[in-house]
């Protein structure tokens, strides 16, 4: 459940938030919605796909983080940190926008007033901390980004540039993963676009986004290698003689 309140320097002065990536705070997701503003930052690490919202069927863009339910391969197995860019929707943690206000879900597992290792939101004098300022900056990216992404996706669908793809990956431990419900650019349809449409997509900056999405697919095999190493490590540790 959520318990969202508009952030206020008096009421929430003592509030602290765990900002770091961690499975216990909800980063254990294999797919997260992303916005077009961050595509260029995502591409060196994550495959970007289209997928459908389970509740509305509407298409959205998302980054793939893992293969199994709840698996985020960018959360290091040893609990350390990964230097990869973290998608805005994970960075935002418990924050929302309500109209033009910044709000916080007080019931989110990241919110914790008593833990001194967590980030403060306000200084004693009520000024926002550097962390809170970074969240405000992030929201200024994310909010218009969602709208831009929605229009981008609608344009792709309108020109029939989207096709479904079934991902089937075999791992060295003999297991397989099949992932359904993902969609990619239809490159055949892209090549056949009429000149005026291609030019329009270029002018709107969409052609670049399209090619970033296509390039990002290379990250599927990088992600698979990451998972493969973890699977093999798990087998190794099982095979080690017990003391």
């Amino acid at each position: 459940m959520t318990n969202v309140a508009v952030l206020n320097s008096q009421t929430h002065n003592a509030l602290r938030v765990h900002a770091e990536a961690s499975a216990q705070y909800g980063d254990n997701r294999r797919f997260v919605a992303v916005v077009v503003n961050e595509f260029s930052l995502l591409v060196p690490h994550y495959p970007i796909f289209l997928s459908k919202d389970a509740d509305t069927g509407a298409f959205y863009c998302g980054a793939m983080l893992g293969f199994d339910e709840g698996e985020n391969l960018f959360l290091p197995a040893d609990g350390g940190r990964d230097d990869a860019y973290r998608p805005l929707n994970l960075q935002r943690g418990p924050f929302y926008t309500l109209g033009s206000d910044l709000a916080i879900d007080l019931d989110h597992s990241r919110v914790d007033a008593s833990n001194i290792h967590a980030q403060r939101l306000f200084e004693d004098n009520g000024e926002p901390t550097e962390y809170l300022q970074s969240i405000r900056a992030l929201m200024r990216e994310l909010r218009p980004g969602l709208e831009r992404t929605k229009i981008f996706v609608e344009t792709l669908l309108q020109h029939k540039l989207v096709e479904s793809i079934d991902i089937d990956v075999g791992f060295d431990d003999g297991s397989n993963r099949q992932i359904e419900g993902l969609y990619v650019m239809d490159q055949e349809a892209l090549r056949k676009l009429p000149d005026d449409v291609a030019l329009e997509l270029f002018r709107r900056g969409y052609l670049q986004l399209i090619y970033l999405m296509i390039a990002s697919l290379k990250q599927v095999s990088v992600l698979a290698q990451k998972k493969n190493r973890r699977l093999l490590n798990a087998i190794d540790s099982l095979n080690q003689p017990r003391a």
């Binding site: 459908k52 509305t56 069927g57 669908l157 989207v162 096709e163 969609y183």
Partner: peptide, 8 residues
């Protein structure tokens, strides 16, 4: 009725 279905 509310959201429609996707064609793909």
């Amino acid at each position: 009725h509310q959201h429609g279905m996707q064609s793909i």
